[in-house]
Amino acid sequence: MLTPVPDADGAPFWRYAAEGELRVQACADCGEPRFPPRPCCPHCRSFAGEWRPTSGRGRIWSYVVPHPPLLPDYAAQAPYNVILVELAETPRIRLVGNLVTEPGAPLDSISPDRVRIGARVQAVFTATGLPQWILERP
């Protein structure tokens, strides 16, 4: 199972995720959200930043279904989905994850044929704080 490896800029993201909260970095001067986390705002070049809570809701913007050969730790779970989620409050921010049946479920817990672009999803978190996604209305 993957575990987060935070850097200085992304450490707050992982701290909030470990608490079950999805937050995104935003510029404290112009308000522009940014992801991935970084020290400088690409919009106004300010170094002031803050972490804003989100609802954790979004929609599937795109997805892939990896098939073997894969890294050995993932081959047994293939085929599984990897989704790109557009956040509801900040549609310019898209996060990668897996669509699962419940927090901490295996990557293959949802059949790939159930994944649909545009489906509404909600963030959930594994015990290690890794974001995953569940369907809002299964």
Rank of each mutant, 00 (worst) to 15 (best):
T54W: 05
L135Y: 12
G129K: 01
E89V: 07
E89C: 03
P37Q: 02
G118V: 03
A127T: 11
P131G: 10
A127D: 13
P42K: 11
Y80P: 10
L99P: 10
G10M: 03
Y74V: 01
I110A: 13
Q132I: 08
Y16A: 12
A119V: 01
M1D: 13
G10K: 00
P33A: 10
I117A: 10
W61T: 02
R116N: 02
G20Y: 03
E89P: 02
E19S: 11
D108N: 14
L71S: 14
V124I: 06
V85M: 04
L99H: 07
V82Y: 14
G58D: 01
G49K: 07
P66W: 09
P112N: 03
W51Q: 07
F35Q: 00
P39L: 01
G118M: 04
L71E: 14
E102F: 11
V115N: 06
A76Y: 08
V100F: 08
I110K: 09
D29M: 08
A105S: 09
P72V: 11
R92Y: 01
P68H: 07
H43P: 00
G56M: 10
C30N: 06
I110C: 14
L135S: 12
S62K: 03
T101H: 10
P138D: 10
P131F: 08
P69F: 08
V85R: 11
P138A: 12
E21K: 15
A18R: 14
R114L: 05
D7W: 02
P138T: 00
F13S: 05
E21M: 12
D7F: 01
A48Q: 14
D7N: 15
P33G: 02
